[in-house]
Design a protein around this nucleic acid. Sequence first.
DNA 1: ATGTATGCAAAACATTTGCACCTGG
DNA 2: CCAGGTGCAAATGTTTTGCATACAT
Lengths: 138, 138
Amino acid sequence: MDNQDLRKAGLKVTLPRLKILEILERAPARHVSAEDVYRTLLESGEDVGLATVYRVLTQFETAGLVKRQNFEGGHSVFELDQGEHHDHLVCVKCGRIDEFVDKTIEERQAKIAANAGFEMTDHSLNIYGICPTCQKKK
Amino acid sequence: MDNQDLRKAGLKVTLPRLKILEILERAPARHVSAEDVYRTLLESGEDVGLATVYRVLTQFETAGLVKRQNFEGGHSVFELDQGEHHDHLVCVKCGRIDEFVDKTIEERQAKIAANAGFEMTDHSLNIYGICPTCQKKK
DNA sequence: ATGTATGCAAAACATTTGCACCTGG
DNA sequence: CCAGGTGCAAATGTTTTGCATACAT
């Protein structure tokens, strides 16, 4: 089935692309960095270059298969794009990432952009904090 | 007056620090990158290293004098911290940055963090789009 | 004087790109 | 076969760091 997605995006079905797609699908955290993907590939004995990981992830993003999130410190994570937009709650201690959607916020954002005369292309809302687990550990 | 702010932060009052503070105060765009500050310094004939610009800006951030915003592409901008929190509207064409505050959004964010059991430490909301000026230029 | 600050050059990251070789359709 | 894909190494852009020197107090 994934082969179809790749072909539709005009991408050849190659081993690296399939493997990376698989890793994204199985990632327990859903949000993984390019480095994470690369490490996982090496662990499974695949001989894929980090450059390819970046190239493939970028192509996937262009194809709409994947979403890229830029967090603080010039560090990005990728997640499978499952259609529904959402924002992120990021734990600054353990890196855990929760997702949420808030219709009210979405609406206000659209209104703010419109008021300012901006044609909104995208938006990112990240709430940083300490997750329940890390609070207990303290 | 600024000398006081520096001293209070435990920083010696040095020429580079004063100059950088001055540039931040006079920046027409309010939001400047380290590179911007560096270039402005060179233009005014000051002999300051880029490393110092980064060091000073980081110290200013720690001291609460300055806010750092991380935008997409591992690129950061700095602005004088004037107390009132605000979010950003960023033009993806010309880089123009507008500020806004929306009480409703702030409240919802706090609620979302609380519901998830997160102790919120910070949050960043950036709306990306095309500003009115760039729309006309099209 | 003495502990900080600074400039410079080198290092550290995260990401991208050039290029010769490989591979899917 | 041949365009597109890949690995590797080198380049990039941004930010940080090591170190010897210079400065504020």
